[in-house]
C-alpha cells in the first residue's frame, strides 16, 4: 500500500502542479503533429500526474476524480476509438485505417483529413495508455483490500 505523504511542501506543490502537468500532457497529445510527442508520451505524462495526486493526496481523493470503473472504461474506449476510426474508413470504402477517406465525412481536403485522423488516433492511444498505466500502478500498489477501504 502506497501511503499518502505527510509533508506539507510536497502536498501543496503537487496540488498546484497537477493541473499544469495535465494541461501539458494534453498539449503533448494534441500537438504530436508539430513537435515531438504524441499519444503515447502524453498519455504517460497524464498517468504520471494522476499517480502524483494519488501518492500525495491519498486514495480517496483520487478515486473521487478517477475511480477504478472509469479507468477500465477509459482504457477500453481508447482502443475502441483507434479501431473505430479504422472501421469508419472501412465503411467509407477505403482500406482499414486509410484516413484520407474521412474527407467525405469531415468535408475537408484528403491531406487535412489524414491529419485529423492522426489526431483522432493519438487521442485514442493517449486515453488507453493513461488508463492502463494508472490501473497497473493502482493494482500493484493496492493489491490487497486494506482496513481503511473496508470501512467505507
Amino acid at each position: 500500500m502506497i501511503q499518502k505523504s505527510d509533508d506539507i511542501i510536497i502536498k501543496t506543490l503537487a496540488r498546484i502542479l497537477v493541473p499544469f502537468i495535465q494541461i501539458y500532457a494534453l498539449y503533448v497529445i494534441m500537438h504530436g503533429h508539430y513537435s515531438p510527442g504524441g499519444g503515447f508520451q502524453g498519455g504517460v505524462i497524464l498517468a504520471a500526474s494522476i499517480i502524483l495526486l494519488m501518492i500525495t493526496h491519498g486514495l480517496k481523493d483520487t478515486q473521487k476524480r478517477m475511480s477504478e470503473k472509469t479507468v477500465a472504461i477509459l482504457s477500453s474506449s481508447g482502443v475502441l476509438i483507434y479501431a473505430g476510426i479504422g472501421v469508419v474508413c472501412l465503411i467509407l470504402a477505403g482500406n482499414y485505417l486509410d484516413y484520407s477517406k474521412l474527407a467525405k465525412l469531415l468535408h475537408v481536403a484528403p491531406a487535412h483529413a489524414r491529419s485529423l485522423g492522426i489526431l483522432g488516433i493519438e487521442i485514442g492511444v493517449g486515453l488507453a495508455v493513461m488508463a492502463v498505466m494508472f490501473s497497473v500502478f493502482f493494482d500493484i500498489s493496492r493489491g490487497e483490500v486494506s482496513q481503511e477501504d473496508e470501512d467505507e
Binding site: 494541461i23 494534453l26 498539449y27 476524480r65
Partner: peptide
C-alpha cells in the same frame, strides 16, 4: 505552450482546458 492562434487549435485548447479545469478546479 502552443503558439498557434488559428481557430482549430484555440478550440482544442478551450476543450482541453475546460476538461482539466472541471477535473481539478478544487485542487
Amino acid at each position: 505552450l502552443s503558439g498557434k492562434y488559428d481557430l482549430f487549435h484555440l478550440a482544442l485548447g478551450v476543450i482541453c482546458s475546460l476538461l482539466i479545469a472541471y477535473l481539478t478546479h478544487d485542487l
